[in-house]
Design a protein around this nucleic acid. Sequence first.
DNA 1: AACGGAACTG
DNA 2: CAGTTCCGTT
Length: 152
Amino acid sequence: AKAPCMSVQRPPDVHHGLAFPDWAYKAESSPGSRQIQLWHFILELLQKEEFRHVIAWQQGEYGEFVIKDPDEVARLWGRRKCKPQMNYDKLSRALRYYYNKRILHKTKGKRFTYKFNFSKLIFVNYPLWDVRSPPPPNLCRVARYSNFRGHL
DNA sequence: AACGGAACTG
DNA sequence: CAGTTCCGTT
């Protein structure tokens, strides 16, 4: 037995060479303490090797991932949000709202497979990206060529 | 399984 | 505003 919704454990820092660069992580570290975002949480699981049997990046298309165990992902998400009644039906509805927001889209045909629209994500959530820090291997190109349109 | 409207919540 | 809950439709 354990306290269900008491503390939120801080994930360790990411080093380069991993499945995705660390700009994607780092979020919600603001002192204002915003609530955890779902895409955020997905990225968090994706970066941890211990969850590879639950959710993992799909090799091939960059940003594409597969939910290997939908029930478990939903359970973990529910635990984080203190929503014990969470399930994949509800979680997937939240993911579908990301389609219009241009954060995610579905990979049609492939079961439980979604893909991040990384280029949008960078500027929506990291508008003040510190250019002094060493640019991540894959992303600097994506970032530079994305058009910054925004009211941010 | 996947989609999306609609009402609802903090 | 970012989901959550519920559910009818494809």
